[in-house]
Design a binder for these strands. Structure first.
Lengths: 209, 209
DNA sequence: TAGATTGTTAATCGATTAACAATC
DNA sequence: TAGATTGTTAATCGATTAACAATC
């Protein structure tokens, strides 16, 4: 296990976890790096190198024990140290994220949401509460909430970001298509749905030619 | 403009487009690579190199004309050659994608959706229709629909993928957390929400130490 | 034991950045 | 003209892959 882990490796780790959980479900108790690599279309040396960042589970001839690998990756991603988050903007995407139960494996617990639209305020099916955006500071400042998820329109994203920072948020997961200005000690992760789409289109066009 | 464009560049192009559209809106008619780089936290040489893949708009001293750059990038992404797509699985995420209007800039038009759940079948607010999954082949085979978006649970994703391939789909944008098996001439782009989350968590943990 | 696998070190490849010439 | 900018070529850096030793 290393202390510095490359960006590329970090981006691949969740896909290992997803594959392993799926394999576990169908009864695979041991799996080799070669098998994982073939299934994900990666190089087997790369898989081994990536896995060595999160786990020491490998055994020559046997491969990796699925269970151990899953729990090591979860531990690496923060499963034992789940961070609380709030989401701002609970329209389509925001509501989807708030309802999604799979983030716990990745160390994220979305505790509640905020919106400016009165009609969205209340309690969702999954018991998660939506508050008015005006209550953000009161609810978040001084709490143990350290991550803010922005799923608003781009027009209000910077304002929401400022409120989150004021309330003590240290990490922002930004789904709005805008670049946010934040103080140096706040980390922003921009999520852009269209990036993958650009790759797909380009690869499809190349094949046509 | 080059013929081969690196994966990293392709992934950045949508963020240039988003920034330019936003700048245009606030009245910026000319913009330099240095400014773009500063706003997105990138190197200015890299920005110039990336933009040279999609455009020839740059003028020394002046910079890039925002309008020209926007339309060149849109053209590059396929705005004049919009591809039709269908989406399978119109629960939370699927419905969000179907309702999202911003994909046209990226050359994607989602024409309608499919679901197995009878209660979701009908017409959405945006006039887009949802059909039963059993109608997939009849609707898609022989049509001009070339992209399938999978937003189902992982349990049914491979089956849906097989149906899409059978119906003549050549590109799959996969939001299910599973690796799909497809023939060689079909391109799969896997989208994994958790990848960005892994990066954010890791960077936050590194700062704490 | 032989063979399949892990894990590491060295070589290659690709992407980023630095230096510089060209242009308006 | 001088200076800000573009765009390209060369150097650096980081990530991937190949080769190989270690292990069960």
């Amino acid at each position: 296990m290393k202390d510095y882990i490359s960006k590329q490796t970090l981006l691949r780790i969740p896909s290992y976890l997803a594959l392993l959980q799926q394999q576990k479900k169908i009864g695979v108790n041991y799996i080799s790096a070669t098998t994982i690599a073939a299934m994900l279309g990666l190089n087997h040396v790369q898989v081994r190198k990536d896995l060595s960042c999160t786990s020491t589970a490998g055994k020559p001839k046997v491969g990796y024990e699925t269970d151990v690998l899953i729990s090591d990756i979860q531990k690496f991603l923060g499963y034992d140290n789940v961070k609380n988050a709030v989401i701002v903007g609970v329209g389509g995407l925001g509501k989807t994220l708030l309802n999604y139960t799979g983030f716990e494996s990745y160390g994220l617990n979305i505790v509640y949401g905020f919106d400016i639209n009165e009609s969205l305020i209340g309690i969702l099916d999954n018991d998660k509460e939506i508050y008015h955006i005006n209550d953000l500071y009161n609810k978040v400042a001084g709490s143990d909430i350290k991550i803010g998820i922005i799923a608003t329109t781009e027009e209000v994203a910077q304002g929401v970001c400022d409120s989150l920072v004021q309330s003590g948020i240290k990490g922002i997961w930004n789904f709005s298509p805008i670049n946010l200005n934040v103080p140096k000690d706040v980390i922003v992760q921009n999520e852009n749905m269209a990036a993958g789409l650009a790759l797909l289109s380009n690869r499809m066009n190349n094949i046509e030619e």
